[in-house]
Design a protein around this nucleic acid. Structure first.
Lengths: 199, 199, 199, 199
DNA sequence: GATGAATGAGACTTCATTCAT
DNA sequence: TATGAATGAAGTCTCATTCAT
């Protein structure tokens, strides 16, 4: 009764989405049963269908939620003054996330890999999980004066981060991601010294 | 060696393993039913249990098979004269595999990611899928005279290859893996010029 | 008539009944969910239970509505001067309805068939759907001077109409019902020429 | 071990089909759950899927079984010497079936009506349930010398039989079907006297 | 009266695993 | 060894019905 007395029915769909996102990260989307989800979100199984009309619909919500997080990350980085700082900040965020990544995999990469196999409706949106950040990186590199090879640099950065995430996860060692992240930050800093002055 | 005339049952287990490896790559291990496997290997469903005592047992065989392929790859590369050529050959092999990787994911990475989640018995052997190649890379870098940062270089190379594989798979574009592979080969060649012996 | 200003809730029950009748005709009673009904009648699902205490209760209303239509048809025909014209008019009405019958089945026959199977409370009222028109026909034949075999003639007429409706529906061809209807009209007209004067 | 010791695995699919045909007749196809079917045929629910890959597949089998019965009926009638006797025999068979029809509906008509609504794959074969017998009747009438109006006569006969079946079922009175059947037999006999040879 | 939300039984389906031969 | 058949748990989904405002 504090702020409102309603049992906050709005919160339920979000609770479900949140739990679904978490479970999909922890054990995979396909591997997560609706019973799992019902228990994790304390919603009776049958009631899930009041909020989502199918499991696929939940998958869509998970995807959207993750895409929203990607957008939020871009938004957050846009507060930094230079493209170099923004890229450094992005890598820093990944590094900070290393323990979780080592335990459950990269939130974007693992979901993307899983959904890329389902040659269904959401194969397109799933691409955004990795493509959107990479496109953003490309923009930052371009702004740094590396317009010509911005795409290659972005591919290099995104590949390294994704690969290091996989290694950290598969080998269960967050330090791998931290190490590779630090190296990438060094690389980024060194890049500014000679900005595309290739001639 | 033949004690009796019974038709060597050896072929069946291998056919099953082979089919399981292929199906796990194509659609994921968990997502592959024993009925799928029975059909793909032309072995009656009930008979699978003569060769494997459970589905988990098949997972173990798949893992072993892939680990065997890793060993074979090392063996094959050992025919090349210098560590640089060996590393270049490894990357070249990955590049040649790009179309398959784009369609089904990296044979090692995707399996490793899937099995890393099953906090069961085979979490340890699964690590080898990515750790063994990386350790091998480390050895090559050391042989090239980069003893001190061999581990970092190996991490860098393996991360980039794995990451590029994920991107190629998720975005459905083999060219990404080819591009990143070529860049890595350039990087490797440039490295020999000044082999850490900076002075 | 208005005792208070409350918006006459009468309209809703009728809207529900009307929609239920239509849906039952189009897709079958059992096959119609309350969610379907709620949507079709623009009445919130939960609110249906204010007007009907169970789905069975809705079935009862559907039945009553159809029985009311039967009564209305009788009423309408009573405006015609002779029994022959009344019977001809009845057949004519059926013929006019042929397109709908071919698409959805006879409104009376299909409902009767569906509800006859439910050995429940409404098995009795359901009989009226076909029995009432048949009794009415019998009366008309009697009035035409065929008192002795009125029951047989009614059976013959009603059977033919129902059977032709089934054929039109099952084969998706309204022409079948039209053809049989015309034949029955001829038969009726020929009957008057020699009214029971069989000798 | 009498004739063969095998637990007659072949019999199971037929037992299932048989039970499905019976249950579909008694309570409708859609209204019959697989649990009902499992119980009626003494087959564990899960095992049904060894014999049929979906419920639709069972529906197909039911349809085929009924169509087979139609063919068998034609075959049986072909043993009679004249078309008149064959038609009389057909009506006689229907009459003999009256008690069952009154209880459960016409085996062909009710199935056809139900499946005509499912605008799916089997809408075509379902038409055969009523169309095949009607086409057969047409042939018999033609053989009787009524080539010109054979189609109309067949429509008339089939309509009357179907309609009388509905009435018998809906009103729960087998006598209605018997009465109408006898009348139709009389009509058929009277028809031969002046076989269309009106001049 | 009205309404969004909840609930639990039951439907169809898949699948790893076991059994009898 | 080989194999068709059996089995039961679990998964996704639907629906009539009820509850709390």
């Amino acid at each position: 009764m504090a702020e409102n007395g309603k049992p906050a029915p709005r919160g339920k769909r979000e609770r479900l989405t949140q739990a679904a996102v978490e479970l999909a990260h922890r054990q995979g989307y396909r591997n997560t049963s609706l019973a799992d989800l019902a228990e994790a979100s304390a919603v009776p199984l049958g009631n899930i269908y009041y909020y989502f009309k199918s499991k696929d619909d939940i998958g869509r919500a998970v995807l959207e939620q993750r895409l929203g997080e990607v957008a939020a990350m871009k938004q957050m980085m846009s507060g930094l003054p230079t493209p170099l700082e923004r890229l450094l900040g992005f890598v820093e965020a990944t590094i900070n996330n290393a323990p979780t990544v080592a335990e459950r995999g990269c939130p974007l990469g693992s979901l993307s890999a899983e959904m890329a196999r389902e040659h269904g409706e959401w194969t397109e949106p799933a691409k955004g999980l990795l493509a959107v950040p990479m496109a953003w990186m490309e923009g930052q590199f371009a702004d740094m004066g590396h317009a010509e090879d911005a795409a290659d640099l972005a591919l290099q950065l995104q590949s390294s981060l994704q690969g290091a995430s996989i290694l950290a996860h598969s080998l269960g060692d967050p330090a791998l991601l931290v190490r590779e992240g630090r190296r990438l930050q060094e690389w980024l800093r060194g890049m500014e010294a000679s900005p595309a002055t290739t001639e």
